[in-house]
Each structure stands twice: as structure tokens, then as C-alpha cells.
Amino acid sequence: MDILLCGVGGQGTVLASKLLAQCAAAKGLPVHTAETIGMAQRGGCVASHVRIGADTAAPLLPFGTADLLIAFEPAEAVRALPYLKQGGAAVVNTRPLQAVTGNYEPAEMLDYLTAHVANLTLCDATGAAERCGNSKALNSALLGEAARAGVLGFDVGELCAAVEALLPERHRAVNLAAIRGNF
């Protein structure tokens, strides 16, 4: 199972990939991830590559091989779509994060995604995170959405266990709520 997480620096893709790796480790599955750390974390495009299983070699996913795309932002979903394999699933946050270089029209991106991805889950994950008490729980909200859509390979309970294992006490409640969709 190969998963690509994409978004904009600061949206929390690194923690999301850690949670997925923790889920895999808890199941005894081999897992590798590769993150964007550095200058791009200041508002640039970022991606985390999560590779679960024993038969992977490269740290980054080749194009056309991701089983699942989890996009923190609609335009970044379109940008990363070449990574998704034929018939792969995508879970996309519908809330745009506009660039300082100018606004784009989110509907155009969502239309493009609808036309190109059969197994597409669209959700306002930022809104969901806000309703849980903190917009920063966007990563947990998206992972929860993917689990509930049955495309993640892990269920809500496994994600919650990963949160318990990785996050400090003070951040747990909001992230657990976001994963469960309790808002």
C-alpha cells in the first residue's frame, strides 16, 4: 500500500504520515516514509510518501503508483494527481489554501478531480477540525475521513490508537474527535 499525502507547508502532513507509519508498525507491517522538511515548510508545496509493505525500494513514490492520495488542499490534489495509480482512491479537503501569488478558483480543481478520479471522497476537513476545536487537527480529520471511506487500510480504532501512542495528552482529545468525526 502506497499513500501520498500532499498539501502546503504548515498544514500538518508530517504528523499525518507519522500516524500512518505508527498504524502500520502496530500491525507489524514494514513501513517507510519520506517527508518534506526545510524551506518548503514555509508555505511551499509539501508531500509525504508513505510506503507500507516489504517490496518497496525507493523512498519516493514513482508516478502512477499511489493506491491512495490524501490531499490537504484542492489545488495540491490536482498537482499530485500524477502519483495516483489507475483506479486509486483520493480523499481531498475541499477548503482551499490560497497562495500569496494570487487566488485560484477551487471549483475548477474540484471539477477536475471529479472528472479524473472515480473513487473520490471530498470533505471540508478544515471545517470538521474547526468544529472539533482546532483547525490544526486537519490531518486527523482527513485520516479519519479516509478510514471511514474504507480506503485507508486502517480503521478508526487503529488511527485512534496511533494518536494515543504519538501525541501528548493535551492534543489527544481534539485529534481523536477529528478522527472519529465527532463534531
Partner: peptide, 9 residues
Amino acid sequence: TPALPVRPP
């Protein structure tokens, strides 16, 4: 694709 936003850090 639709024109994608440029995102400099």
C-alpha cells in the same frame, strides 16, 4: 490541468 497556484516559500 487548471492553472495551479505558484507557492514560493
